[in-house]
Structure formats: C-alpha cells, structure tokens
C-alpha cells in the first residue's frame, strides 16, 4: 500500500533534515498512528505520501505508483485514490455540508446521478443526514470534521490520511471521530493518522510509528503513545 524507503527530506536553510533515512511499510487495511513532537517530521511525511512534496533522496511507492517518478499530470488521478482530513477541517464556508461533499465529486467530473446518490449515503454514514443543508458555521467542530471525513471517503479511497483530525476537538467529540475512523478502517481503508492525542493512541492500541528529529525511534504493533 505505502512503501517508504530510505527517504530523506532536507529543506533549504534548515540545519538538519526534516526526515532522515526513513523507511516504512504499511499494508492494506492497517491503521497506523504516526506520533512525535512538533517538528519531528510527521507533516513532511504526510505531504510526501500525498505527493505534495518530493523527497530529497529515497523512494516512495503508494498504491503501486512511484511518487518520485510520476509525471505531474498524473498526480491528480493518483490523489483520487486518497482521502485526506486535517485538523482545521478545510470546508468551504459558503457551501452546505452536502455541497461541500458534492464539490469534491464535481471537480473530479463525477456525474450528477452519482453525486445525488453518494452524498446522502456518505452523510448518513458519518451520522449527519439531518445536517446536510447546514453551513459549516452552523455546525460544531465535531460535525465539521464529520463533513470533512465524509468528503474524504465519499470517493471510496484505498488510503485515508488524517493529519491530527482530533487536534481541535474535545475528548468526547474526538471519541466519536475515532469510532468513525475505526469503522472506515474495518471496511478496508488503510489509515495513516498523525496525532498528538495520547489518550486516543493509548486506547486503540494500533501500530504506532514514532518520529523524533526526522528519524524513526519506534515502530510497534499494538503500542501506546510512549513516555515522551
């Protein structure tokens, strides 16, 4: 699914590389927590899996695509197989929940018929069918993140990248989002989630990869957040 091999990423002017000879293999259906302090390289890694950035050295294969060699024009097609959610939700403020989800399908050219079926269905899946016509400003943080999740999975991606999806939510709401992510994972979607949330990592006991100063310091199945 995701194969990261000896990846180093240096930014110009930075004293040390953001990622230093990192190798990770993630299989289909896995749920992986990516933990580490701010600046440990989590975001750099996520960006490279999304092909928003290229490694300085090393290779990245995602869903059979060699992301270092893939031509620019094929990148959009590659990204259609990935879903992404962020800490800040990134919803369009002037569109309703349903329109936000529909927008992501419209821009990849899905038919109107497909959209009118898929959008209510995915909103039901995330438990928001009642709020389909609400604007993001009328929704709570947890609800907004559900809309973002609905948008990320409506196209049935093989991989879901979640960059601190509970970072802006209170523990109870986070719990709800985690349940949802778990269900998405059980349905077969591979999930790579970067997080600072000790409680969640400790509770779910998934595979944990810990980064520190750009290096992998721990990669354990069924682990917790760790002592740091």
């Amino acid at each position: 699914m995701i194969s990261i091999s000896q990846v180093t990423k240096s930014y110009r002017g930075a004293p040390r590389p953001a990622l230093d000879n990192v190798s990770i293999e993630i299989d289909k259906g896995e749920f992986v927590f990516l933990v580490g302090a701010s600046g440990s390289g989590k975001s750099s890694l996520m960006r490279m899996v999304l092909r928003e950035d290229l490694p300085t050295a090393g290779s990245i294969h995602v869903l059979g695509e060699n992301l270092v060699g893939i031509p620019n024009r094929r990148v959009p097609h590659f990204r259609r197989n990935l879903g992404v959610v962020f800490q800040d939700f990134r919803l369009l403020p002037n569109k309703t929940a349903a329109q936000n989800v529909a927008f992501s399908l419209e821009v990849i050219g899905k038919s109107r018929g497909f959209i009118t079926e898929a959008v209510p269905e995915v909103l039901r899946l995330v438990g928001l069918e009642e709020k389909a016509n609400s604007l993001p400003s009328e929704l709570s943080g947890g609800e907004q993140q559900r809309v973002a999740l609905a948008r990320a999975i409506v196209n049935k991606p093989a991989i879901l990248l979640a960059d601190e999806p509970t970072g802006n939510l209170d523990p109870n709401t986070s719990e709800g989002i985690m349940d949802l992510l778990n269900r998405i994972n059980l349905a077969g979607t591979t999930i790579l989630m970067a997080t600072h949330d000790r409680g969640i990592v400790d509770k779910y006991r998934k595979r944990v990869i810990e980064l520190s100063q750009g290096k992998i310091v721990r990669d354990e199945q069924g682990s917790g957040y760790g002592n740091r």
Partner: peptide, 16 residues
C-alpha cells in the same frame, strides 16, 4: 481555499 480542496481531492489541472 477551493483550489486547495480541488487539488487534494484530485481535480485535474485543466479542470482547476
């Protein structure tokens, strides 16, 4: 904002 989302969900450059 729209452009960022369009790129994330894989809208083609031409479409954007």
């Amino acid at each position: 904002r729209e452009i960022g989302i369009m790129r994330l969900v894989g809208a083609s450059n031409f479409y954007i």
